[in-house]
């Protein structure tokens, strides 16, 4: 894989008070690549994703999308964020809007599409995640898996260059997890560039180009799934993978 680099992250630092959450994170993302971030809670994975689209402003370091700086971009951030889709652990669907309107609203208000165009585009995205028949239901009437698929459709509707997934299945039971992961696999196979924070190692093994293991705000090691899982360089990585294995069965062989 030697594609074009579309996202560059350089030396990201972030502290909350005296707690250093991120201590100098750098990596490049190629077009069409899927990177999976693993590591125990509190190692800064979610904060890192939020620093990429500036929902959290890093103390130091830069993020570049297509050679344009995302950090310090002032008002341009609203344009750049449209190109960086984000999916949250708790879905964060807009509870007062139907599934279709959830997907539509940013198209109308941000992209200034007319209602007809936006409605068609929203339906297209709902079809893509297999929810065209739920278009008129409100978030409270959807299952967790459906809600998360709507939120993926909502992000996709903006035609992003890269998608950030922040533990997208952590709030779901195993059956619902499957339907969300399937949508994400399809996306990856269709060439979407994705950064995914997850502990679903089955997904990581079958989809990721690179797995990044984070520890205490730093990247401890990274590599292709086979490298990292079969041959971790550090004991800490091995330990963590063993823990995951105990919890979810042998990793790398499932799915």
């Amino acid at each position: 894989m030697a594609g074009e680099i579309i996202l560059k992250v350089r030396d990201i630092h972030k502290s909350y008070g005296s707690t250093e959450v991120l201590r100098g994170i750098s990596f490049d993302v190629q077009k069409g690549e899927t990177k999976v971030f693993i590591g125990s809670s509190g190692t800064g994975k979610s904060t890192l994703l939020r620093c990429i689209n500036q929902l959290t402003v890093p103390d130091r370091g830069q993020v570049w999308l297509h050679g344009e700086e995302v950090t310090h971009s002032g008002k341009e951030i609203n344009r750049l964020r449209q190109k960086i889709g984000m999916v949250f652990q708790n879905f964060n669907l807009f509870d007062h809007l139907t599934a279709r309107k959830n997907v539509e609203v940013a198209l109308i208000k941000v992209r200034k599409m007319n209602r007809k165009e936006a409605g068609d585009k929203a339906m297209e995205e709902l079809v893509r995640v297999g929810l065209e028949d739920k278009a008129d239901l409100y978030p409270a009437e959807l299952s967790g898996g459906q809600a998360q698929r709507v939120s993926i459709a909502r992000a996709l509707a903006m035609d992003p260059d890269v998608m950030l997934f922040d533990e997208p299945t952590s709030a779901l039971d195993p059956e619902l997890t499957g339907e969300v992961l399937q949508v994400m696999k399809d996306l990856a196979q269709n060439g979407m560039t994705m950064l995914v924070v997850t502990h679903e190692m089955g997904f990581a093994c079958s989809v990721a180009n690179e797995i990044i293991f984070m520890e205490k705000g730093e990247i401890l090691e990274s590599g292709s799934p086979s490298e990292l899982i079969c041959n971790p360089r550090y004991d800490r990585t091995k330990q963590f993978l063993n823990k995951l294995g105990e919890l979810y069965g042998d990793i790398g062989r499932q799915r």
């Binding site: 689209n53 929902l55 344009r79 960086i84 949250f88 964060n92 669907l93 509870d95 940013a106 941000v110």
Partner: peptide, 13 residues
């Protein structure tokens, strides 16, 4: 804050 974050992540001011 989730509602605000989701809206901002879509590019809303």
């Amino acid at each position: 804050e989730g509602q605000m974050m989701a809206a901002r992540s879509l590019g809303m001011t």
